[in-house]
Design a protein around this nucleic acid. Sequence first.
DNA 1: TGTACATCAGTGAACGCGCGTTCACTGATGTAC
DNA 2: TGTACATCAGTGAACGCGCGTTCACTGATGTAC
Lengths: 207, 207
Amino acid sequence: MAGDRYHHGSLRTALVTAALERARTGGPAALNLRELATGTGVSPAAVYRHFAGIDALIATTSQAAREALARTLIDARHRVASARPTQAGAARRLDAVGRAYIEFAVAEPRLFETAFTPCAVLPDEPDDPSAWQVLLDCVAELVDTGAIGEHAAADAPFIAWSAVHGLSNILVNAPAPTDIDVERATGAVVGGVLTALGIHSDRRRRG
Amino acid sequence: MAGDRYHHGSLRTALVTAALERARTGGPAALNLRELATGTGVSPAAVYRHFAGIDALIATTSQAAREALARTLIDARHRVASARPTQAGAARRLDAVGRAYIEFAVAEPRLFETAFTPCAVLPDEPDDPSAWQVLLDCVAELVDTGAIGEHAAADAPFIAWSAVHGLSNILVNAPAPTDIDVERATGAVVGGVLTALGIHSDRRRRG
DNA sequence: TGTACATCAGTGAACGCGCGTTCACTGATGTAC
DNA sequence: TGTACATCAGTGAACGCGCGTTCACTGATGTAC
């Protein structure tokens, strides 16, 4: 809509795209106003037409990275969609989302790091889509199908998020105290979540 | 041993102590060679007598923060020591260590952040004490007492570490998508770990 | 026990870089008449 | 349909700061004789 016929560019979008690309290889530390500007073919000062400063640009980029993660989760969830919701289906979808979370972190460690880097300013709008919301949707489906009780449902998002987020962080950052078999650890952690929630995992049929 | 009668100071130790103190309030971003030096009563150049550069100083400080965490875990574990190892005792010790991990992160968020900040160089020696090792000890005790099987033991450290590390990260960093009840989330996550490992939690008797 | 000397932890001044930000400006866009 | 003008996204040069690092040096320590 904004089109290709503009003053100099749809700069705001172009800057965020460039920032994501840089963050993908260099993490949040690679987000540099001057290089981002010149890399987009624009003078540093032009950035200030669209962002209050570097902190706002970083916050926006971080949010964009989280939204990319959320989209990956949504895709993974839809890939195991079924005609009618069932307990087994709901469990398989949570399993798929958990695995996708960890796989995203392993595939794009610097982008994952960027997604959760502490930012000096808050984004103007909430994440859209939101990874947290995807998780809540998964849990809601588990409740709807009767796979878990209402009471367990309150704790479920924390249990699930902590586990996959924790392993992701460990795989991405940690000066690993021991060499980690990513496949195995992923299976153990995601399987552990299902067990913790009292859901019968059907990993046997798939591994 | 090094004593108080020295050239100008037992500088290396003094610098790391000062760095930990600064990191405690400002995180790894507050680790600044010049301020650290002058804050210790020494010129910036003096730092180079003890560290190759700022990266080495940061790496050492990060390691010191991890070791502080490990010491906290060890204390927590010893606090529920029993005369003879039992299944219930082993479970309670894992529970206590898990809670202590999260409590450390909540009590000292910037120090926790420092402990796991990505470093440009690796420390010369492994962490001592090591948080990972404390976890392995807990799992070993669970195996010894027969609380969990040998097979489950291989996955247990990942399940436990991911869960507590993940919640800690979320509590420390996350621009929380929802307000989190720390007590409740801690209980849910640590309880979830015990359930995932197939251990009968005795939280009912304590909460 | 005293003296000469090697060692080495410190000083202090300076370097040079890269950064975010500012400011007066220019030139294209789009609208009122 | 043309012209005048307000708007605003851009330029380009410069500022100033804080940083890690370097270098020739100084002065205290400890050891050999």
